[in-house]
Amino acid sequence: PEEVRRLVEELYRKGVSPEQVKKILKKQGIDEREIEKVLRRIG
């Protein structure tokens, strides 16, 4: 979803590592598979 992409990109631009991005967003209840999809697209 758009909102997940925005959150991931925001953290990524701040220099947060992909592993940390995953941890942070998982705590917020976001599906890990969604996060990984976005990270793959960015990375």
Rank of each mutant, 00 (worst) to 15 (best):
35 I>D: 00
1 P>G: 10
27 K>T: 10
35 I>F: 02
18 P>V: 10
26 K>V: 14
42 I>M: 12
1 P>N: 13
6 R>A: 10
30 I>L: 13
13 R>Q: 06
30 I>E: 02
3 E>H: 08
30 I>D: 00
12 Y>M: 12
9 E>W: 14
18 P>Y: 04
15 G>P: 01
3 E>V: 10
37 K>L: 09
40 R>A: 14
36 E>N: 05
26 K>I: 13
3 E>I: 08
1 P>T: 12
22 K>W: 10
19 E>H: 13
32 E>S: 06
30 I>C: 04
26 K>L: 12
35 I>M: 02
43 G>C: 14
35 I>S: 01
2 E>R: 10
34 E>R: 03
17 S>T: 12
19 E>V: 10
24 I>P: 00
29 G>K: 03
39 L>H: 01
9 E>I: 14
17 S>E: 07
32 E>V: 06
11 L>S: 01
11 L>T: 01
16 V>F: 10
23 K>H: 10
27 K>M: 11
37 K>M: 08
13 R>H: 12
25 L>M: 04
4 V>G: 01
3 E>Q: 07
42 I>G: 06
7 L>N: 03
17 S>P: 13
43 G>R: 13
8 V>A: 08
21 V>G: 01
42 I>A: 04
34 E>I: 13
35 I>A: 02
30 I>M: 14
24 I>K: 05
33 R>T: 11
26 K>W: 04
31 D>N: 07
39 L>F: 03
19 E>I: 12
14 K>E: 09
6 R>P: 03
16 V>S: 08
14 K>P: 02
41 R>A: 15
1 P>H: 12
7 L>M: 11
38 V>D: 01
18 P>F: 04
21 V>N: 00
35 I>N: 00
25 L>N: 00
9 E>N: 05
33 R>I: 12
28 Q>P: 01
31 D>F: 02
40 R>F: 14
11 L>C: 01
37 K>W: 08
24 I>N: 03
29 G>S: 03
19 E>P: 08
38 V>C: 06
32 E>L: 05
15 G>S: 04
37 K>R: 11
42 I>E: 06
15 G>R: 05
28 Q>R: 08
43 G>L: 15
39 L>I: 11
3 E>C: 07
31 D>E: 09
13 R>D: 06
43 G>F: 15
29 G>D: 04
5 R>H: 14
5 R>V: 14
36 E>T: 04
11 L>V: 02
15 G>H: 05
39 L>G: 01
34 E>C: 03
26 K>R: 12
36 E>Y: 02
11 L>G: 01
28 Q>C: 06
42 I>Q: 04
20 Q>V: 11
43 G>P: 15
32 E>A: 06
4 V>R: 02
31 D>H: 05
23 K>I: 11
28 Q>V: 08
17 S>H: 10
27 K>Q: 11
2 E>H: 08
3 E>F: 06
31 D>V: 03
10 E>V: 07
13 R>G: 07
18 P>N: 08
21 V>M: 09
42 I>K: 03
5 R>E: 15
24 I>D: 06
18 P>G: 09
17 S>A: 10
43 G>E: 15
15 G>D: 03
16 V>K: 12
20 Q>I: 09
7 L>G: 01
36 E>M: 04
20 Q>Y: 09
22 K>N: 03
22 K>M: 14
34 E>D: 07
7 L>D: 01
37 K>H: 07
17 S>R: 12
24 I>G: 02
5 R>K: 14
31 D>W: 03
23 K>S: 13
4 V>E: 01
42 I>P: 15
33 R>H: 11
21 V>D: 00
25 L>F: 02
24 I>R: 07
24 I>S: 05
3 E>A: 11
22 K>D: 01
12 Y>H: 07
36 E>D: 10
10 E>K: 07
23 K>L: 13
13 R>I: 07
34 E>S: 05
19 E>M: 12
36 E>I: 05
37 K>D: 15
13 R>N: 11
27 K>H: 10
16 V>T: 08
22 K>Y: 13
17 S>K: 13
1 P>K: 10
40 R>E: 15
2 E>N: 11
43 G>Q: 15
18 P>L: 08
1 P>E: 14
5 R>G: 12
11 L>N: 01
27 K>E: 09
3 E>Y: 08
13 R>Y: 15
15 G>C: 08
4 V>N: 02
10 E>P: 01
13 R>P: 01
36 E>A: 04
31 D>T: 06
7 L>Y: 06
24 I>E: 06
17 S>L: 08
3 E>W: 10
17 S>F: 07
10 E>G: 09
41 R>C: 08
35 I>G: 00
1 P>I: 08
30 I>H: 13
37 K>T: 10
32 E>M: 04
16 V>L: 08
36 E>K: 04
31 D>Q: 05
7 L>R: 12
38 V>A: 08
28 Q>I: 12
30 I>T: 02
4 V>K: 01
6 R>E: 08
40 R>M: 13
26 K>Y: 07
16 V>N: 07
32 E>H: 04
2 E>Q: 10
34 E>A: 05
12 Y>W: 09
5 R>Q: 15
19 E>K: 13
41 R>P: 15
22 K>F: 12
18 P>A: 12
17 S>Q: 08
25 L>I: 02
36 E>P: 00
20 Q>F: 10
26 K>M: 14
13 R>M: 09
14 K>W: 08
9 E>T: 10
6 R>D: 05
33 R>K: 12
22 K>I: 12
29 G>Y: 02
18 P>H: 04
23 K>C: 05
28 Q>G: 06
27 K>C: 05
22 K>R: 13
23 K>Q: 13
17 S>G: 11
33 R>N: 13
35 I>P: 00
32 E>P: 06
18 P>I: 09
8 V>W: 02
41 R>F: 15
33 R>V: 12
28 Q>D: 06
32 E>F: 02
23 K>T: 11
22 K>Q: 05
14 K>T: 10
40 R>P: 02
35 I>E: 00
40 R>S: 13
16 V>P: 01
41 R>S: 15
39 L>Q: 03
42 I>C: 13
9 E>G: 04
13 R>C: 11
15 G>K: 06
33 R>Q: 11
1 P>V: 09
32 E>N: 05
41 R>Y: 15
11 L>F: 05
28 Q>T: 08
15 G>F: 04
24 I>H: 06
19 E>A: 12
40 R>K: 15
34 E>M: 11
42 I>H: 06
15 G>Y: 03
20 Q>L: 11
27 K>S: 10
38 V>P: 00
5 R>S: 14
3 E>N: 09
16 V>E: 05
36 E>L: 05
22 K>P: 02
18 P>R: 14
38 V>R: 01
12 Y>A: 06
43 G>M: 14
42 I>Y: 10
29 G>N: 06
24 I>M: 09
12 Y>V: 14
17 S>N: 08
43 G>H: 15
26 K>A: 09
25 L>W: 00
39 L>K: 00
39 L>E: 01
26 K>N: 04
10 E>M: 10
8 V>Y: 02
22 K>L: 13
2 E>A: 10
41 R>H: 15
21 V>E: 00
17 S>I: 07
11 L>A: 03
31 D>S: 10
19 E>L: 13
30 I>F: 14
20 Q>K: 12
25 L>S: 00
21 V>F: 03
33 R>W: 07
5 R>T: 14
9 E>S: 06
9 E>V: 14
39 L>D: 01
1 P>Y: 14
41 R>T: 15
31 D>G: 06
12 Y>I: 14
13 R>A: 08
33 R>L: 12
9 E>P: 00
41 R>D: 15
37 K>G: 05
38 V>M: 05
34 E>G: 02
8 V>S: 01
32 E>G: 06
18 P>Q: 08
1 P>C: 03
30 I>K: 02
41 R>G: 15
31 D>R: 05
29 G>P: 01
1 P>F: 14
2 E>D: 12
39 L>W: 01
27 K>Y: 09
14 K>G: 09
28 Q>N: 06
6 R>G: 07
13 R>F: 14
4 V>F: 05
36 E>F: 02
42 I>D: 06
25 L>E: 00
2 E>K: 11
3 E>T: 07
27 K>A: 13
13 R>S: 09
33 R>C: 05
23 K>D: 10
40 R>D: 15
30 I>G: 01
26 K>P: 01
21 V>H: 00
39 L>Y: 02
31 D>A: 08
15 G>M: 04
40 R>I: 15
17 S>D: 05
36 E>H: 03
3 E>G: 07
10 E>R: 08
26 K>E: 07
22 K>G: 04
6 R>Q: 09
6 R>Y: 07
28 Q>M: 12
40 R>H: 15
25 L>R: 00
32 E>W: 04
40 R>Y: 14
26 K>F: 06
10 E>T: 08
23 K>A: 12
16 V>R: 09
4 V>Q: 02
15 G>Q: 04
33 R>M: 08
26 K>D: 03
11 L>D: 00
2 E>P: 07
25 L>K: 00
35 I>T: 04
3 E>L: 08
16 V>G: 05
20 Q>G: 09
11 L>Y: 04
